[in-house]
Simulated scan of single mutants.
Amino acid sequence: MDILTMNRIKVDSLILVLWACCTLTRCSSDVDVLSPKLTRCTHERAYDMYGAYCGGLRLEKIPNLKSSIEILDFSENRLNELQASTFTNYPNIKFLYLVENQLYRIDENAFAPLIYLQTLDLSNNVILQLPQTMFQLPSLRNLYLKNNPLLHLSINNLQLRKPINAPLELLDLSNCKLEKLPNWGTLPHLVQYNISHNPLITIDAQHFASMCGLKKVDISKSIDKIENVCELKPTIHWFQVNAISMDLDDYARLNSKEFNECPSMTENDLIVLNTTHHTCRSMYSKFHNTFTSRRTWLKVTGGLAGFLVCFMLLLYIMHRYNVAQTKTPAEKIKKVTPKNENDRDAAKPILNDSSDVSRL
């Protein structure tokens, strides 16, 4: 390989790296100016799913899109509200991104048609109230509500129908100006819980005991307003006992002499927490057993249906084979050509008309 070719490869590699960096960071540079700006939604395939990308178009409503979309990215627009009819034409959506709009109102049944929705991102809006039906979606696993500074005005009085049926695994409530955590009831599937950058004035271990699958919680910049450090002791102790990873920007208060001298949880408090935890585990086991039974039933049903299809196909093939075998001798007889005139006459049926019979 000559030097010129090597230099060309290096230049091409640098251009590719630069383009990738600009795409990932959405930077605005001279290279970005050369590419045309999107003026309307585009339909693309990603991760074997069909999606629509409408990001950054400053749209005030969702335009007409293909009803088969499974991903909708409507970030960085000017959407103000979600009505009950907003998503009725898109029942297959699994991933919905509404980041950085101007959402303040969401109709109670806005998300009801989205029974397959797995991820919902409502970050960076001004949402005043959350619809209860959102927490009953049967497939919702990831819910992002961060940077909704007005959410605290109503979330403390949120009366949710419990238990929450949505199998939430990730819940992000960071920077929502919450002083008190909402009563979610039992969340047996929750694994990651982000409540960072909230001015919490209290934090209760009972709140986390109902999250029996919790593995990671982020409380960075959220416990600074809790003056009595001993109020943190039961919750921190619960995290340690249940091997819950905790993200905290400053561990000085937890390593202080004052914190170490705080009284530990009483036996009664521990019994109450364990009871809540066991109830959560029971709900998780029930859900898991139901899911396993349903999956087993679907496998058995699918296997039986496959067997019946194969059996019917086999019967059809045998039927066609028998018909073909029956037709073959007749076709061979038709195709036989007599070698001489005598043979041809011998093949004719001997039929006497009525006049010949009368002569006899």
Rank of each mutant, 00 (worst) to 15 (best):
V17P: 01
V17I: 12
V17C: 10
V17H: 12
L18S: 09
W19G: 10
A20V: 13
C21Q: 10
C22W: 01
T23I: 10
T23H: 04
T23W: 05
T23F: 15
T23K: 11
T23Q: 13
T25G: 09
R26E: 01
S28L: 09
S28T: 13
V31L: 14
V31Q: 05
D32R: 07
V33E: 08
V33Y: 14
S35M: 14
S35A: 14
S35Q: 15
S35G: 13
P36D: 13
P36M: 00
P36C: 08
T39M: 11
T39R: 14
R40F: 12
R40E: 15
H43L: 15
R45N: 12
Y47T: 14
Y47I: 08
Y50K: 10
Y50G: 06
Y50P: 08
G51C: 11
Y53Q: 14
C54S: 07
G55E: 14
L59A: 06
K61V: 01
I62D: 04
I62H: 11
I62W: 02
P63D: 09
L65Q: 11
K66E: 15
S67W: 06
S68G: 08
S68A: 13
E70S: 15
I71P: 01
L72C: 06
D73N: 11
D73A: 01
F74C: 06
A84T: 07
S85V: 06
S85Y: 02
S85N: 08
T86D: 00
T88G: 02
N89S: 15
Y90K: 02
P91L: 04
I93D: 01
L98A: 07
L98F: 08
E100Q: 11
E100A: 15
L103W: 00
R105E: 11
I106N: 00
I106L: 02
E108R: 10
N109Q: 08
A110T: 01
A112M: 08
A112D: 02
P113M: 00
L114N: 03
L114A: 06
I115D: 11
Q118D: 10
T119R: 02
T119N: 03
T119I: 14
L120F: 04
L122D: 01
L122E: 00
S123K: 05
N125M: 04
V126G: 05
I127S: 05
I127E: 00
L128F: 06
L130K: 00
P131H: 08
P131T: 05
P131Y: 09
Q132M: 09
Q132T: 13
T133W: 03
T133K: 14
M134R: 01
M134Y: 04
F135T: 09
F135P: 03
Q136L: 10
P138L: 02
P138N: 07
S139Y: 09
S139D: 15
R141W: 03
N142F: 15
N142Y: 15
L143E: 04
L145Q: 03
K146D: 09
N147I: 00
P149S: 13
H152M: 04
L153H: 13
L153P: 04
L153A: 12
S154W: 03
I155K: 04
I155N: 05
I155Y: 03
N156P: 12
N157G: 15
L158S: 12
Q159S: 14
Q159N: 13
L160A: 10
L160Q: 05
L160H: 07
